[in-house]
Simulated scan of single mutants.
Amino acid sequence: MCGRFVLLTDLSVITEHFDIQEIACEYKTGKNISPGQLVSAVIRDEKNRLVNFRWGLIPSWAKDPSIGSKMFNARAKTVSEKPSFRSAFKRRRCLIIADGFYEWQKLEKWNVPFCFSLKSGNPFGFAGLYESWTSPEQKQIQTCTIITTDSNELIMPVHDRMPVIFSKESASLWINPENQNKEELLSLLKPYPAEEMKMEEVITKLG
C-alpha cells in the first residue's frame, strides 16, 4: 500500500522534470502527506497541467463522499475492472508527484518507518487515477487514488506492496487520455527496479 509520502522539491524543478506547460493550482508539498490532503498531480489535457486533487477517490456515482477515505489506493491487478476505478482507468489517469514514500516495518514492540526514494534523487510520478464528484449542493470535488503493485526486492522485507512508480517514458504513455490500449496500460503497472531505489530508516519525527 501507499499511505504516506513526501514531496519537497522546488516547483521550478518539477515544472521542468514533468514538462508542465500550465500550473493550474497551488503547488502542494509536505514531508508527511496523507490521505484526505490535497496533492499535486500532472494530467494531460491537450498539454501537461499541474493540478490539485484530494487524495482518496470518490467515484462519480457515490452517494456518500466518505467512501474516499477508504479508496486512497487501487490494486493494479483489478484497477481496470473494479466499478470504483474502471471509468477513471479509461480516460482519467494522472501522475501524483513525490520525492519518496514511507512504509513501516513491523517489529515485536513497535513499527519502524522507512523512506523509499530514487538513487538519482529525482522526483517521480506515482500511477494515479482521478475523478470528479458532484455533491447534492452541486459542488465539485476532484479526488485521486494511487495504484499499487507487488513490492520489488528492496521493499519486500518491509511491505509486500508498493506504489507504481513511472519512468519518464512510461509516464507519458500513462497520462495520454487518447491511449486506450488496455493491455499496454496494464503492462506499465509493475514494480520499479529495486536497483534504482534506496531505503533509509526515518530517525526524525514525521511532521
Rank of each mutant, 00 (worst) to 15 (best):
I20Q: 02
L11M: 05
F101R: 00
R54D: 11
Q180R: 14
S60M: 07
G121Y: 04
V39P: 00
L118T: 07
A194C: 06
V158H: 01
N181M: 06
F101I: 07
P136I: 01
S187L: 04
I147H: 03
K82G: 11
N176K: 03
V164C: 11
P193C: 09
I43Y: 03
C115F: 06
T15E: 15
A74M: 07
L38T: 09
T29H: 04
K47G: 09
I96F: 04
S66D: 14
M71A: 02
F166G: 01
K119T: 08
T9R: 02
C115G: 09
G36N: 08
L118P: 08
F5I: 07
D19C: 04
I58F: 03
D19E: 11
I43M: 10
M197I: 06
V51W: 00
L50G: 05
Q21L: 11
R54K: 15
E46D: 14
W104R: 04
D99K: 00
S12M: 05
N111H: 09
L50W: 02
S120R: 05
E16K: 14
A24S: 15
N111A: 08
S12N: 14
I155M: 13
L154S: 10
V51M: 13
K70S: 14
R86K: 15
R92D: 13
F5R: 01
F5G: 01
K77Q: 15
T149A: 07
I58Q: 00
T148Y: 01
K198R: 14
K82A: 14
S60G: 10
L206P: 10
T9C: 04
M1R: 03
P191S: 08
C25R: 01
F126H: 03
L185R: 03
V79A: 05
P177M: 07
S80N: 12
A171V: 06
N111M: 08
F101T: 06
A194Y: 10
P65F: 01
T78M: 09
K90G: 06
L8R: 15
G128A: 02
K182Y: 08
R54Q: 15
M197V: 08
T15W: 12
R93D: 12
E81A: 11
L185I: 04
S135H: 09
E178A: 10
P191E: 05
P163L: 02
L11I: 11
E183H: 12
W55M: 03
Y130N: 08
G128S: 06
V13P: 04
G125H: 01
K182D: 11
F166L: 02
V202S: 05
Q180L: 13
A194P: 03
F53E: 05
S60I: 05
F85C: 10
E137S: 15
E137L: 09
T134L: 11
F101H: 03
A24N: 15
E195A: 07
K31G: 13
F116R: 02
G121W: 08
K82N: 14
F89D: 11
C2L: 09
C94K: 00
E26C: 05
V158K: 00
R91I: 06
I58L: 00
W104F: 15
N179K: 05
S170F: 10
I67N: 01
E81G: 07
V164M: 03
I97W: 00
E108S: 10
Q105S: 13
